[in-house]
Amino acid sequence: MPFENPGREEIKNILENAGNIAVVGLSDKTDRTSYMVAQALQNNGYRIIPVNPSVQGEILGEKVFSSLKDIPEPVGIVNVFRRSEYTPEVAQEAVEIGAKVLWLQLGITSEEAYKIAADGGLAVIMDRCIKVEDSILIGKR
């Protein structure tokens, strides 16, 4: 059966119950899409957790972790800004840490990552921007 994103109501429910959002591939460069999306999520009341092994310290006032496994608290959504070929490994880590949702950003898809995450009990959203979905379905908090 081919992959299909959840319907709008389910995505709205996911966002309303997001918990912590780990942003994999979050850049510390302010002109990057990942930075702008994470900042918009913060501005709308979400707690983001940066994941980037190339950055030390903080991004957007939050401690940066090298991998999902290093995060010492629960993660609801794993939001991914990595090329498709890297997403199966991220999906495996998301399963291992007990995340609820694997969200691949706009332009990112991977059948392998989908299978890993779905088999691990995660909801999967691919090729959608979390910021856009939040703006459409939730709006300003």
Results as ranks from 00 to 15, higher is better:
53 P>H: 13
132 V>R: 12
66 S>F: 11
23 V>T: 05
120 G>T: 14
85 E>R: 06
69 K>Q: 14
124 V>C: 14
56 Q>W: 00
49 I>H: 03
56 Q>A: 12
120 G>P: 03
120 G>M: 12
32 R>G: 09
124 V>H: 13
21 I>D: 08
79 N>D: 15
78 V>D: 01
98 G>Y: 01
35 Y>K: 01
77 I>C: 05
82 R>D: 10
102 L>W: 12
87 T>A: 12
43 N>K: 15
29 K>T: 09
2 P>C: 08
88 P>E: 12
140 K>H: 15
84 S>T: 13
112 E>C: 02
86 Y>S: 12
140 K>N: 13
18 A>D: 05
8 R>F: 13
51 V>T: 05
11 I>Y: 04
73 E>H: 07
121 G>E: 15
100 K>T: 05
28 D>Y: 08
113 A>L: 10
47 R>P: 00
105 Q>E: 09
114 Y>D: 04
115 K>R: 15
63 K>I: 11
92 Q>Y: 03
22 A>S: 04
29 K>Y: 05
96 E>K: 06
24 V>N: 03
111 E>S: 06
7 G>F: 11
109 T>L: 07
62 E>D: 04
137 L>Q: 09
98 G>C: 09
116 I>F: 07
43 N>F: 08
128 R>N: 04
125 I>L: 14
25 G>R: 05
108 I>P: 00
15 L>V: 10
55 V>L: 01
58 E>F: 14
42 Q>N: 11
59 I>T: 06
24 V>C: 08
127 D>R: 04
126 M>N: 09
89 E>H: 01
18 A>F: 05
125 I>R: 08
92 Q>L: 08
22 A>P: 00
1 M>V: 00
3 F>K: 03
69 K>E: 15
86 Y>D: 15
18 A>M: 02
114 Y>R: 09
16 E>I: 06
19 G>Q: 10
40 A>D: 13
66 S>G: 14
126 M>A: 11
61 G>K: 07
52 N>W: 08
38 A>P: 00
98 G>W: 00
133 E>D: 11
28 D>M: 07
65 F>C: 04
139 G>V: 09
30 T>M: 07
33 T>D: 07
25 G>C: 08
105 Q>K: 05
22 A>I: 00
58 E>Y: 14
121 G>V: 13
115 K>A: 10
89 E>P: 00
29 K>Q: 09
9 E>P: 00
57 G>N: 12
81 F>N: 02
94 A>E: 09
12 K>S: 05
121 G>P: 09
88 P>F: 12
35 Y>A: 01
137 L>Y: 06
46 Y>F: 15
7 G>I: 08
